[in-house]
């Protein structure tokens, strides 16, 4: 059975108001464990909306979101957070790091609400920082890092809770070719380690990569077609 199952999903913003907007309409999709899936489509086609529903950031207006066999569509926020914390790591378009805080603390933040001691947390973080080659900058504030380094901090933070799925929204939008390649190389390693990866992008450099197993093209909140490579 697929790791992520989506059935008849729709997301309507501002229901009942004049500016009501259907961001997703009757979307069904499944993503297997260990797969690299890419959502493509023009801006406004609903990629980010779909990602946030998959990643338990928001609740759908209708339909089912089944993660590892459990429908999370109607879960109260508190439990949605628990699922998100346990299964997903996020890499955002704007990195979303806390700029005045050190690299290490940024990476550790997802673990703060858990009952885990500081030293145990650091033991978890250090190998990840080393793997991403930023451990030497762990005490620097994020605002003093270059774009590429910030991207790697963001990846480290997404990995700290040992997620099964990595969700990345337009990850290469702010990167040049070389850094984008570096990013894809990191993803490749992670995929080899068994992580499922879901990326939303309209960057051909990403969706044409050999890594990608499934391309889902979207338009106006609907799935136009699914290509399996």
């Amino acid at each position: 059975m697929a790791y992520i199952e989506i059935e008849g999903l729709s997301k309507v913003y501002n229901v009942g108001r004049a500016d009501e907007l259907t961001a997703l309409a009757d979307v069904s999709l499944s993503i297997d464990s260990g797969e690299v899936a890419v959502l493509t489509g023009s801006s406004g086609s609903g990629k980010t909306s779909l990602l946030s529903l998959i990643g338990c950031m928001a609740r759908p207006t209708q339909g089912k979101v089944i993660i590892a066999g459990k429908d999370v569509a109607k879960l109260p926020e508190r439990f949605l957070t628990a699922v998100r914390r346990k299964r997903f790591g996020f890499i955002f378009q704007q990195f979303n790091l806390i700029r005045d805080v050190s690299v290490l603390e940024n990476v550790l933040l997802p673990l703060y609400p858990l009952d885990l001691g500081m030293s145990a947390m650091k033991d978890k973080a250090m190998p990840i920082l080393e793997k991403l080659k930023i451990s030497h900058k762990k005490n620097l504030k994020v605002k003093n890092l270059s774009g590429g380094e910030q991207q790697r901090v963001a990846i480290a933070r997404a990995l700290i809770n040992e997620p099964e799925v990595i969700i990345a929204d337009e990850p290469t939008a702010h990167l040049d070719r070389r850094l984008a390649q570096e990013f894809l190389d990191i993803l490749e390693v992670l995929n080899h380690e068994g992580k499922t990866i879901v990326i939303a992008t309209h960057d051909p450099f990403v969706y044409d990569n050999r890594l990608v197993g499934k391309t889902v093209s979207m338009r106006d909140g609907r799935i136009e077609g699914v290509t399996i490579h």
Partner: peptide, 14 residues
């Protein structure tokens, strides 16, 4: 209304 996934229900939850 627990079965509802409206924005209003979400605001109640919050």
């Amino acid at each position: 209304d627990f079965s509802s996934s409206s924005q209003y229900q979400l605001s109640l939850e919050r």
